[in-house]
Design a protein around this nucleic acid. Structure first.
Lengths: 420, 420
DNA sequence: GTTTGTTTGGTCGTTAGACGAACTAACTCT
DNA sequence: AGAGTTAGTTCGTCTAACGACCAAACAAAC
């Protein structure tokens, strides 16, 4: 096969610390190396187990180059040689896999009622998954930071006991997070201008790994991209289905955060002009007409307490299963409104997939078809421009998983740990 | 000054012709060279006239490297040496500028009523700007292709007479254009599944330069990015204000076209549920409640003919200037609806700027303030997340200018003409 | 004028690292 | 055993960035 002519894409360059707006950075030999290391690492992640020859054949890199790159990755303990192939013509190949043992990526998701912590290895396999109650809505931000730091420390010591090096920690927050990792506004948590990334780094005092903070919907989208069944999809939108509704937007394979990091605030798009009032002060927001709060307010007498969200959703599910016409009608209305929101996304962004997450997953049997139909009816492009509406298979803690995935992404895109 | 540590961005690699979904391509020395050539070219574009020493100091590239890169660019006739600096301590610098004379980039915009063709040199300075009536709405697609090809040929021969080499041709179309340059749906033109890029390339028979087709709003956004007063902005949305309303979405410095190329169809987002019917079959679309057709339908007795759009807009402007309460009220309503659409964009994408183009420019004095206020009221992020609503200064033919800009962009991102 | 200092831009040798070809290793098949 | 096949390594080549040095060309100070 001919080596394909390659022309026009992108390589990893060093842009850290340069003034913004300076334009793209010049490239270096080290950039070539970093790019190719990342290419090999990603290839093995997606095709393990595979041989050096496989890598060379598929990526177009020279066999000699692949050998050198693989040796480097083995030095950094990112790859490991496993057995040989047998019963084949020719010299048997030594197979390569990601080395799962030396590293860990940590993700923590905080929410109004609970906190989820996960750690995964380089392969993305779960090492640890904790879930505990968390008084996010009532505690002060200082107490919250202390609580998160405490959990983070426990996860890190646990990983250290297993002889793993923590590559990074990312925290998912339901709210507006700016590009520095500071939480500008998290209404459900009662936070405003909390420099969570900075405070956490301080509380962990020189942790030796990067501490990042991001929006929960953004990280949910990353989780779907890495762990969901969407191989090859480069344009995806993830919708959280918690008390609020947020969107994580992936276009051309990367999260798009907007100018200040505040993209994806679909929950406060006006869907029903003059509709029911939202806690944000506006009316008819998607969150009010297609969120869970509104649903539960009408099915559960006496209002909803965040801490009791899950059992109440379960009750709705039971009543729907039993055929309760009131609940079915409410779900149908919710689905219609949700579909209108998804239609807006389909028209504006033309994603290949929109993934429903959070509690929407449990409600899917009663809302998915209607919502998809509504979306298709509203999209200008025939067939919705190829946009599919699907349900997340990741369950709760998708954002925590995505937070860990963000750490792995930074490795995949060239930020490798140093060799031993 | 210390050389800044560079880490984590991206380099131009060769991705042409490789299977999609293969993941990022490996890098090569030629990629480093291409990246650095592009870096120098862009630097000179933004800082001309400047010396080699300036380039080295600002980009961090080595002086020797810059000399080599500049020599290469001069060989390719992209840069030119101009006079020396005087009256300064030290050896005078030889200044470098973009060479405007050897090349041309061509953009053509087709619309319902007219066709605009522009050619610009490497600096982005206009070489030619034609506007002529074009029966886009009534002609068959075959006739339209022939007409466009005819204009393109005339532009090319004109450029050839000026001893310029045409680097590329891009055509802007108001409609859904897929990623191959095929027009899937252009309701106002009456087109469906027209392989415009292919047909044009055929009609021009081996033109020796790439022929591309893109959506008019996308190209309007590119025009704003390059020629508008938005230096350093990386997240921008451009709204066309023609018969239809479309959005061009730039995030992180590049156009985002969505999975099939159909992003930006803001015109058919439902703004007023149950509102007036739209020609697309739905009701209350942004296009109907904030587009020009709706405005003119109510101000001009007897309906609107596309060919007479401009004088009718002018009449609306005159009546607004005269203080006609009916017109002012209609404009205020339009502005409110437009602002709701912009609010959706601000919430979902958090751009730094939303630019109003097309005929919105003429109406700006009566709609801008109200629309911005409406947008700010609807954005969840305080202050709209920093989003500003502004008016385009590029006038008509912004899409044609953007079409030419797309050609320049491909040069800027590494696809350089061969040396003489 | 002469000297000194400063800045520009080019030359030369070094070095990182990808590539191609040749080579060795290890297996299967006949 | 020999032929054929595939895997991975070694070695030399080549591209292109980098650092150090140098000559040229000027202003300012003397």
């Amino acid at each position: 096969m001919m080596r394909p002519t390659r022309n026009g894409a992108q390589l990893i360059t060093n842009t850290q610390g340069s003034a913004p707006g300076t334009g793209p950075q010049p490239a270096d030999f080290t950039d070539v190396r970093a790019t190719n290391l990342a290419v090999v690492l990603r290839f093995v992640r997606e095709n393990a187990p595979c041989s050096r020859a496989d890598i060379a054949a598929s990526t177009g890199l020279n066999k000699a180059t692949v050998s050198s790159l693989v040796a480097d990755l083995i030095d950094r303990r990112l790859l490991r040689e496993t057995g040989l192939t047998e019963n084949r013509v020719g010299r048997p190949a030594t197979m390569l896999v990601l080395d799962g043992s030396p590293y860990a990526a940590v993700g923590i998701e905080v929410n109004v009622d609970y906190l989820t912590a996960v750690a995964v290895d380089l392969k993305g396999e779960a090492l640890l998954s904790w879930r505990r109650a968390f008084p996010g809505g009532s505690a002060s931000s200082g107490q919250a930071v202390a609580g998160i730091a405490g959990v983070a420390r426990r996860v890190v010591t646990r990983m250290t006991k297993e002889a793993r090096q923590v590559l990074g920690l990312t925290v998912a927050v339901p709210g507006l997070v700016d590009l520095t990792g500071s939480v500008r506004l998290a209404p459900n948590m009662g936070w405003r201008d909390v420099d969570l990334a900075g405070d956490l780094a301080k509380a962990l005092r020189d942790p030796g790994f990067p501490v990042l903070v991001d929006n929960d919907a953004n990280l949910g989208a990353l989780a779907e991209l890495r762990f969901g069944p969407h191989s090859g999809v480069r344009d995806l939108v993830y919708l959280t289905g918690e008390i609020g509704v947020g969107a994580g937007i992936v276009l051309d394979g990367r999260l798009r955060r907007g100018g200040a990091g505040f993209s994806g605030e679909i929950g406060h798009i006006e869907i029903v002009p003059g509709g029911p009032p939202c806690h944000c002060g506006r009316r008819g927001c998607l969150e009010v007409v297609a969120g869970l709060g509104a649903l539960l307010d009408r099915t559960v007498p006496g209002g909803v307490s965040p801490a009791e969200l899950e059992p109440e959703i379960d009750e709705v599910v039971q009543r729907a299963e039993a055929g309760d016409p009131v609940v079915l009608d409410l779900l149908d209305t919710l689905a219609g409104n949700l579909g209108r929101g998804v239609g807006i996304v389909a028209n504006l962004l033309n994603p290949e997939v929109v993934v429903l997450g959070g509690y929407y997953v449990k409600l899917a049997p009663w809302i998915l078809a209607r919502a998809e139909q509504e979306m298709l009816a509203r999209a200008l492009a025939p067939g919705g421009g190829g946009c599919r509406l699907v349900v997340s298979g990741l369950g709760y803690g998708a954002a925590a998983l995505g937070a860990a995935a963000r750490v792995l992404d930074s490795v995949d895109s060239g930020r490798l740990p140093a060799p031993a």
